[in-house]
């Protein structure tokens, strides 16, 4: 028994000596959305982590992996020399080609995305956002059977003009989770537009699913946290090869939608 215990200790010793130093950087001020994502992260990550605010100084490195929740945290963490996971930062656009960086999208994988839409009878989705979509996402969704017609909003005020633009013929409308496009006013106007056209409207966040909204086509903050944990683990073992990962969470669908096709 003693020798068995010693063998276990011996087996554990190297990993204990090389315990990963994981740093989670949180945007400041700390929002409920960030707290929810952190809870999701902890539910998937069973090791120890250090946390730091994006506003203060980060703990001295080296770190084996850094997870940034929010754009401010991503801005702060990208200077560090460590593999980086960025979540809850749909507007974050890094100018430098940083190696070993994974972004957690706020949408499900394009195939799952297309599957949800296909189940609702949608073949052509009108997506409204402030910046062009990831080309790979659009391509994979098209292969899966749903054409995404992207419309770019120069400013939230331009929504009526964009919705009246040429060739706006779609089976459904989606206000994408893009900070430059989502305001109370654009959300309300887009929903009314969908209602008037009798097409389903999909929201940019899980919290915005209501009686009038068919579904959210996005994932919750908690799911983003979970996916960040998975990405961090894969970065640690060097297994991850893609730059954008999509949470595989379930997506809410409203049973009393504003319209059904």
């Amino acid at each position: 028994m003693r020798s068995a215990f010693a063998a276990v200790l011996l087996a554990l010793a190297p990993s204990a000596a090389r315990a990963e130093r994981v740093l989670v950087v949180l945007s400041d001020p700390l929002r409920p959305s960030t707290v929810e994502a952190l809870e999701g992260f902890r539910s998937e990550w069973d090791g120890a982590i250090d946390t730091a605010s994006a506003r203060g100084a980060l703990p001295a490195g080296p770190h084996d992996v850094i997870i940034a929740f929010g754009s401010r945290a991503a801005e702060r963490a990208r200077n560090e020399d460590a593999p980086l996971v960025i979540a809850l930062a749909p507007a974050f656009r890094s100018r430098d080609r940083r190696p070993r960086t994974v972004r957690v999208a706020m949408t499900p994988p394009p195939e799952r995305f297309a599957e949800i839409l296909a189940a609702a009878g949608v073949r052509r989705l009108l997506a409204v956002r402030a910046a062009p979509a990831d080309a790979d996402f659009v391509k994979r969704a098209a292969v899966a059977g749903v054409v995404i017609d992207d419309r770019i909003l120069p400013s939230p005020d331009a929504l009526p003009e964009v919705l009246r633009g040429p060739g706006v013929e779609a089976d459904a409308l989606w206000l994408a989770p893009d900070p430059g496009a989502v305001t109370k006013e654009t959300f309300g106007a887009a929903r009314e537009f969908a209602r008037a056209r009798k097409i389903p409207f999909f929201a940019p966040a899980a919290g915005l699913v209501s009686d009038e909204v068919r579904g959210e086509l996005t994932v919750s903050f908690r799911d983003c946290g979970r996916e960040a944990a998975k990405a961090a683990r894969e970065l640690l073992v060097g297994a991850i090869a893609v730059k954008i990962v999509y949470p595989t969470a379930e997506v809410d669908m409203s049973t009393r939608a504003s319209a059904t096709p």
Binding site: G70, E75, L88, R93, P179, V182, L208
Partner: peptide
């Protein structure tokens, strides 16, 4: 949800 997007919008790079 709205607060999250507003916050992110200000943090644009």
């Amino acid at each position: 949800a709205f607060r999250f997007f507003a916050e992110e919008s200000r943090a644009s790079t």
